[in-house]
Amino acid sequence: MGIYLDYAATTPVKPNVVEAMMDIYQNHYGNPSSIHNIGRDARKYLDDARRTVAEKLGAQPNEVIFTSGATESNNTAIKGLAYANRHKGNHLITTKIEHHSVLHVFEQLEKEGFKVTYLDVNEEGLVGLEQLESALTEDTILVSIMFVNNEVGTVQPMFDIDHLLQDKDIYFHVDAVQAIGHLPVDFHELDIDTMSLTAHKFGGPKGVGTLLVKNATDIQFSQLGGEQEVKRRAGTENIPQIVGLSEALKTATDELDDNNLHLMNLKNQFLVALQDRAIPFELNGSMIETTGHIVNLYFPFIDVETLLTLLDLANIYVSSGSACTAGSTDPSHVISAMYDKERAFHSIRFSFNEMTTEREIKQVVAELHKIYHKFKKEEV
């Protein structure tokens, strides 16, 4: 298969997750809204999954809403909070480095008359707390900031942001997609109002996610139909995928410490090996406020499209940024916001998980060394 280093885009489904899902497909196929025995059997698995998600994320079971993924969760939270609280104000705040499932929602809300402040970040990808504080106004009703950036791995100061918003009538939404399995996440300890995640980033199936909504949050839900998810999201729940999500979340959180140690070791070995080979590069982001699974590097000697092609031909699979923008000719908006567009045209993302080995890292560095010397000779 080659060497897959694009785990921030998606992860393979873990064997225990597949096993749990197949059991539901084959043996517990009832509609959880049906009142007969087969339906009640399916309902039990739905309720158990909801309790597992709540327990692992520090929430109450009735604060867990199952969705089709983080895009739906982000859309539901941001639009729902904005529409429900427009009578209080029309000012919203986010950052320039959010995922497009957040940024495009804010852009749409601007067209509908909301005012949006897009916060800058520094070269480590961090939001300035003073900048956030100065952006707050009497009309601010929502702040949305992602926990871990999906392109550079920077971890935002969530507790500081939460402290800044305390005692203010402002909702706080967090896209926590890249944090799950890499950082301890406690919904109530962080005092977040809404939080989104998706299963396929931590060994679960695609097409299922979760939106956590704190009790008493004033939010408008738009998906109408049946009374599923306590009337918050109409549509028959996909029990196999929901069970898969809960099983994957349980594994990811239970193995978090061991996996993090492995990932940080891989990240350090990768950077040291590049230095030892004298390959010119610079790290995009922070070496301190970061997770171990994402490394974004600037290679001045080659453009990103050429490098991606050469690595692909060598059966090494990486990306230039979010998989959701694949096919776009625009440079990464994250790297552009942190540095400039020119740097973005020469930057690439490597992302690891617990299955990545030291041998694979050495092979990737060796291939990058070959590519560098090939281009070095051509320049001469």
Rank of each mutant, 00 (worst) to 15 (best):
D6M: 13
K14S: 01
P15V: 03
P15M: 04
E19K: 10
E19N: 09
M21G: 10
M21E: 08
M21C: 14
G30E: 07
I38C: 07
R40A: 15
D47N: 14
D47E: 14
R50P: 04
R51V: 13
E55K: 07
E55C: 06
A59T: 04
N62W: 08
N62P: 07
I65F: 06
I65V: 05
F66I: 02
S68C: 11
A70D: 03
T76E: 01
K79D: 07
Y83N: 06
A84I: 05
I97M: 09
E98M: 12
V102D: 04
L103K: 11
H104Q: 09
Q108P: 06
L109G: 14
E110L: 13
K111W: 07
E112H: 13
K115M: 12
Y118R: 00
E124A: 13
L126I: 10
L126C: 09
G128C: 01
L129G: 12
E130I: 02
Q131G: 00
L132S: 05
L132K: 04
A135T: 01
E138P: 01
D139L: 08
S144D: 13
I145W: 05
I145D: 03
N150P: 10
N150W: 05
V152R: 07
G153Q: 15
T154K: 09
Q156F: 02
M158S: 06
D162I: 08
Q166A: 09
I170K: 05
I170C: 02
Y171V: 02
D175M: 04
I180V: 09
I180Q: 01
G181I: 04
G181S: 05
H182Q: 13
V185T: 03
E189D: 13
D191H: 09
S196Q: 04
F202G: 01
F202D: 00
G203E: 00
G209Y: 04
G209C: 04
K214N: 01
S222Y: 09
L224P: 13
G226E: 12
Q228F: 15
K231E: 10
A234S: 14
T236P: 15
T236W: 11
V243S: 12
L245I: 03
L245Q: 02
L245E: 07
S246Q: 06
E247P: 06
L249V: 05
E255S: 13
E255M: 05
L256S: 05
N259Q: 11
N259S: 13
N260T: 15
H262S: 12
L263Q: 05
M264K: 13
N268A: 15
N268Q: 12
A273L: 06
L274W: 01
Q275R: 07
R277Q: 03
R277W: 06
P280M: 07
P280F: 11
T290S: 14
H293R: 14
N296I: 11
N296H: 15
Y298V: 08
F299S: 02
P300Y: 08
P300I: 09
V304D: 02
L307T: 00
L308K: 00
L310E: 03
D312L: 00
D312Q: 01
A314W: 03
V318G: 02
G321I: 08
S322E: 13
S322H: 11
S322I: 09
A323I: 09
C324W: 15
S332V: 12
I335A: 11
Y339R: 11
D340I: 07
E342Q: 14
A344P: 01
R349W: 05
F352Q: 07
E360R: 04
I361E: 02
I361G: 02
K362W: 09
A366E: 08
A366G: 15
E367I: 00
H373I: 08
K374D: 09
E379K: 10
